[in-house]
Amino acid sequence: MPMLKVNGRTQDVRVPDDTPLLYALRNDLKLNGPKYGCGAAQCGACTVLVDGQAVRSCVTTVGTVTGQSITTLEGLSTGGKMDALQRAFMEEQAMQCGYCVNGIIMRARQLLDQTPKPTEGEVRLALDGHLCRCGAQNRMVRAVLRAAQEG
């Protein structure tokens, strides 16, 4: 039975090792952040951090991440305090429907962890594999740059 360390807590999930992480997180651990968009690593909606790296949970099996530290959107706020990215996305009203936002914030978290003061071009490049059909990209880029400023 795989043990998953998610948002700082280690939990058993009673699923086969080859279960996509996305379903274990959403259905077994009842997390809302990661979303199903394509199931094929094409859109980014399902992104979570595994040991700080943004990975697509729809194509990551549970068995490959046991023991590693998994962070979802819910896990970004600590002690009731929102992550700088979450605050910046609110400040910039950086979405329409918000379905893609989980993945974009998670990927941006990895970027800011590695490159605390990215250029606009670096932000766009980092987010290039994430699709937003509502067309809120520019607002999201502004939000990431704001979060980098206000850190």
Binding site: N32, K35, T72, L73, E74, L76, F89, G98
Partner: peptide, 28 residues
Amino acid sequence: DVPRLDIPAKVTGERIFLHDLRPQGMVH
């Protein structure tokens, strides 16, 4: 400009989408 009412839940992962409803006994 009044901050949109639905945005806080969408940045924190609180339940706001239909996708996140999990009524008792739900099947897929």
